[in-house]
């Protein structure tokens, strides 16, 4: 019995060491980048690195906000993220409902095939069309292009969440003379609030993090945050402090959202993957 207990304790210790090691592999780089964004150029290169007790410098943040218009870039990213998510919800929610209730499984297969396409293969025509229409470097082009990713995502996720709501509810409502649109608006939607929250988060972050579309379709007026990061690299010379400060600005929302809404994100990720 004693031996068994000892073995169990040792097992537990090993387990916690392993878990701690894994967390360290993830947390350390984030912490390292975070503190490096408060160090001056020379200190970034001091090895072994000073992890605590150095004098923080705020000059990099001052620089990116005062000289580099990071305020504007944040607004650009937020506008594109909010509106592309909003419009994608308007298009995607009713579609997900009708697809689920009518068993239109082929449309889901279509979404799956669309996922196999390299994004570049619709970006090239977008670039062509939007430059013909004079829409390159407008919010419209960015919002529309980000919706190409978020509409399928929302339909895919919401179809799964709506499938969890019993059909008997719709039937009862329609027999009582309720129209389908009212049934959808006042019965179904209120019942899948957490699914909607999940779709909204994943869609917004997808847009916030998007680089490829904004790289081609944005311009000086609509530049979004991820695109700006590359401008700190010119040849071999990298302004580390400034770039890392900008990197922190880009990743902060993702970190905050993850800390607050881990459960929703996990449910969205599993709903998205298991169905495939």
């Amino acid at each position: 019995m004693e031996a068994y207990k000892a073995k169990k304790t040792i097992g537990k210790i090993i387990f916690y060491i392993a878990v701690a090691a894994i967390c360290l592999v993830i947390i350390f780089p984030l912490y390292f980048v975070f503190i490096s964004s408060f160090k001056n150029m020379a200190d970034v290169y001091v090895m072994p690195p000073k992890l605590i007790g150095f004098k923080p410098v705020f000059a990099h943040y001052e620089y990116i906000f005062k000289t580099q218009n990071y305020g504007t870039y944040i607004v650009n990213s937020a506008v594109v993220g909010i509106f592309s998510t909003l419009f994608a919800l308007v298009l995607g929610l009713p579609a997900a409902y009708a697809i689920n209730r009518n068993g239109m499984k082929n449309s889901l297969l279509g979404i799956l095939v669309a996922r196999l396409l390299p994004p570049m293969s619709f970006l090239l025509p977008f670039y062509f069309i939007f430059s013909e229409l004079g829409m390159v470097d407008t919010y419209g082009a960015l919002i529309l292009s980000h919706m190409v990713l978020s509409v399928p995502l929302i339909v895919w996720l919401m179809e799964g969440f709506i499938a969890g709501i019993p059909r008997e509810l719709d039937e009862a409502a329609t027999i009582d003379g309720c129209t389908r649109q009212r049934c959808f608006g006042s019965i179904i939607l209120p019942m899948c609030k957490s699914g909607m929250a999940t779709s909204t988060i994943l869609s917004f972050l997808g847009s916030w993090n998007n680089f490829q579309f904004a790289l081609i379709l944005s311009g000086p007026r609509t530049r979004t945050l991820p695109v700006t990061l590359q401008y700190f690299v010119s040849g071999a010379d990298i302004r580390w402090g400034r770039m890392l400060a900008a990197t922190i600005v880009v990743i902060i929302p993702a970190i905050v959202v993850t800390l607050l809404l881990q459960k929703n994100i996990v449910s969205g990720m599993t709903a998205g993957a298991v169905k495939g």
């Binding site: 980048v33 972050l205 680089f211 590359q230 770039m243 990197t247 800390l259």
Partner: peptide, 21 residues
């Protein structure tokens, strides 16, 4: 679980810049 999730939620470009350092 939250810690494990963190890298996945970040912009790949930002992660790339971090690792350049």
């Amino acid at each position: 679980k939250t810690i494990i999730l963190l890298p996945y939620m970040m912009a790949p470009v930002a992660v790339g810049m971090m690792w350049m350092l």
